[in-house]
């Protein structure tokens, strides 16, 4: 492992394991998250199918929650993106960054500043599957160019790993946030 880490172009050994040596695990992990989200969605009552998930939060303009939800997200999003970016060379990465971004999104939703999107929106579904699809696409690219699924062509490992992480970040943020919001409980209109 220590002998081969240089070939990946990634400085953080954990990221190298996750996305180079055991990339299949990480792909399946993203699939498990997506399947869990589908499982949660499928528990919706018939009239709420494709509706907004979670409870309806009312905005209380003078509460400390609203104040925090206005002040904290810029800092939290910066921290999340930083943690995502340093994942190549230091502890961090897409899951950790996505967790922070998702918590900021949930904070804004719980304060009532914004509403969770109805689950039948097409853009939402595109963003959800984008990360795993890019991951699978890179895997097939490895089949064509390097002879094995998820094998990286020599010299291309770092850019491809960054591309996978970049595509997975928004997908994971949405999946984690929507998993926390839970079952669709409201129809689309309110």
């Amino acid at each position: 492992m220590a002998q081969h880490i240089d070939s990946t172009g990634v400085g953080n050994p954990i990221t190298a394991v996750l996305l180079a040596f055991r990339a299949m695990d990480t792909l399946l992990e993203a699939m498990v998250l997506l399947l869990a989200l589908l499982g949660v969605w499928s528990l919706a009552a018939d009239q709420h199918w494709g509706g907004r998930p979670g409870l309806a939060y009312t905005l209380q303009p003078n509460s400390i929650l609203t104040y925090t939800a206005r002040v904290l997200p810029p800092l939290g999003i910066m921290a999340g993106l930083y943690i995502f970016w340093v994942g190549a060379d230091a502890p961090g990465g897409k899951f950790q960054g996505a967790t922070l971004l998702a918590s900021m999104w949930l904070l804004v939703l719980i304060a009532g500043l914004s509403k969770a999107p109805p689950l039948k929106r097409r853009w939402l579904r595109v963003w959800l599957v984008l990360g795993p699809l890019v991951f699978i696409g890179v895997g097939w690219l490895g089949t064509l160019l390097a002879g094995a699924f998820l094998a990286y062509p020599p010299g291309m490992a770092k850019p491809l790993i960054v591309a996978i992480e970049l595509a997975l970040l928004p997908s994971l943020t949405l999946i984690l946030g929507l998993l926390m919001l839970g079952i669709p409980r409201r129809s689309v209109s309110p």
Binding site: P13, I14, R22, G93
Partner: peptide
């Protein structure tokens, strides 16, 4: 050892 740590995150 990074391998168990990576499995841990998964």
């Amino acid at each position: 050892d990074p391998v168990p740590q990576a499995l841990l995150i998964t």
